[in-house]
Design a protein around this nucleic acid. Structure first.
Lengths: 196, 196, 196, 196
DNA sequence: TATGAATGAGTCTTCATTCAT
DNA sequence: TATGAATGAAGACTCATTCAT
């Protein structure tokens, strides 16, 4: 009952992952609509026909790439939560600001995240996928900072805007990476989290 | 500013504008690579062949749309500058934060701006176009706030990140539009501009 | 107002005809679904892209081929009608039975007609196309033989069945072409038309 | 009638039948070339790989469906032969005309029969399959009516044309089903069989 | 015997671009 | 200056067939 039968067997899941990693890399470099299925199949070392069976077409791959991209934010939340045990959450988060900023200003991350946002503007499925994901991330952070409430939500949204804005800045003007002042950023984040 | 190759006349410029407005609207809805030349030619009321002569291909239209999109930031700078005559620049700018935030959270603006950023990630011409544009905007703002200097540049970049982040947030999670606290945002902007 | 502008200009109509002739020949040999657009474009001496513009896809070509195939039945009706002036309609038609039988037993005609019928079994558009056409042909014949009425319709339908059956027979068993007795067929047709 | 290559056992034959029934139903609805092996395998409840082993590819299934379709004509002949014992063959057959007409005008039968004819126009194997089958049916009928002879063959072919034509009519113009006059048809059949 | 994962050639279709008018 | 007919390369997707298990 465990060796045969596939569709979601271990090997099938590994295949899925293999394709999504390859596809994400293609999308980073070319965007969703300039990445062809044959590019993905070449990068994944799998025939285009089989990729279709796995993902049900290009739309399925797009959604797979989008879903996969945001799974690592969960790890970041865990990290903050773990550090919050030793000090207070605000300090824990503020200490992680440099690392977080670096991540958002990384050009690979920024390119893929921006491509996903652009796609969400016209693809309903992608839009609801990233919104649902953001809702759960938002709730986790709100809980961390004193439980869900409009006030905390406003604080989290503003901080999220700053970080997402770092990605936008690093694409629009790569030289801004050298000018952004991380300590200034930390002070701003801290001041937002300690409002009221 | 020398002679353009095909038609520098007023009517030719009006034609250009007409096409770019139509093209921008298409791009907003579909993105660069899902917008076909025939869609643009239909929207602009001009034959596809003629559009090619005007813009030298799709690449030319993309660049035209990108260049045009940022021309209105100049007006915003003028507005701040004008208001700065009466009070100080920081107050003038802070007063304009609500209006500016609204603009960046507008879904049409956000969609097109994000599409342009995504395109810049893989199109060298677009990348340098928006970087040059950002450089000149940045310099204008730095001048307004006592710069140019690395310190003022850092302040401007951080504020720019926040506003661009508002666009990202409004796409990723449209519900954040209702939660973002404009007064909190004003306080943050003011605190950044009055650092040191 | 007559030289430029196309879409249905003389040259465009000639192009349409050119494609449909080529397509009909392909369909005769291979059937609708084994005939590829590239085969048609090769046979018509026109690019596949342009054929799409003309016909809006393969479906459009199928419908064009179907519509075109039945246009020659009109000529046959005219012939019967003309001959009916000299003698009575029954004699006129009976005299044309050999020619008509030959036509229906021609393997090219039989192959295409059968392919169209097969397509009509699963393609709503084709079904209504050939039904409408048959309705108008049927009405013309009924008028010829004493005006539309259930009785005359029954006579016409039975005769039509015989002729269409000749096509089926000549495909199912080509040797039947040599055995079918045209004079027997004439007597049968005459007896049907003189019933009651 | 020697040993088949893969499984001549009862269970294997039942499997074959199961697949052919499912395939025939698919073909009725979609035609040979729009019916995919995976549709057949789904309808038959058997894997596509196994179906290949049984039938040696799609071509084998097509031939299987074609061969199977005409097996029921044998039963009809038996029926006529049985009834011929009581009365003469002409009366026996004439009495069965309504039942036979109904069968040929049934849309399921007509669709599959027409699909097979269309396929025969371009598939040599199918063509010779249905011709051989028709030859044996024809001989049986000729024998029944005093046969075999060119004259009786002509009579049988003409009657066969009428019935096959009913299928064609019912596809081309379904409304003809209501107008065809069965008694008129019976008179015509009787008159053909009593010629000379 | 039986499965279905995997392949890759082939299909329809789209679209930027060219060119005769 | 302006049109749109025409091209052909490239795209997503389908499907008969193969093969390891």
């Amino acid at each position: 009952m465990q060796k045969k039968k596939s569709g979601d067997s271990a090997v099938a899941l590994r295949r899925r992952e293999q394709v999504l990693v390859a596809a994400a890399e293609c999308v980073r470099r070319e965007g969703f609509h300039r990445t062809s299925m044959s590019q993905i199949s070449a990068a994944a070392g799998m025939s285009s026909g089989h990729i279709h069976h796995f993902f049900g077409g290009k739309e399925g791959i797009i959604e797979g790439v989008v879903a996969r991209e945001h799974s690592d934010l969960g790890e970041f939340i865990d990290e903050v939560r773990a550090a919050s045990g030793e000090t207070d959450a605000v300090t824990a988060f503020t200490d992680l600001v440099p690392k977080c900023a670096e991540r958002y200003m990384n050009s690979d991350h920024a390119a893929l995240a921006t491509e996903i946002l652009a796609e969400a503007s016209r693809n309903e499925n992608v839009a609801s996928l990233i919104q649902r994901n953001d809702d759960s991330v938002s709730e986790a952070f709100q809980t961390l900072f004193g439980g869900p409430s409009p006030m905390v939500r406003a604080q989290c949204d503003l901080i999220a805007a700053i970080f997402e804005g770092l990605s936008a800045r690093s694409i629009r003007n790569p030289s801004s990476r050298e000018f952004i002042d991380i300590q200034m950023l930390q002070r701003v984040v801290a001041s937002i989290l300690t409002e009221k």
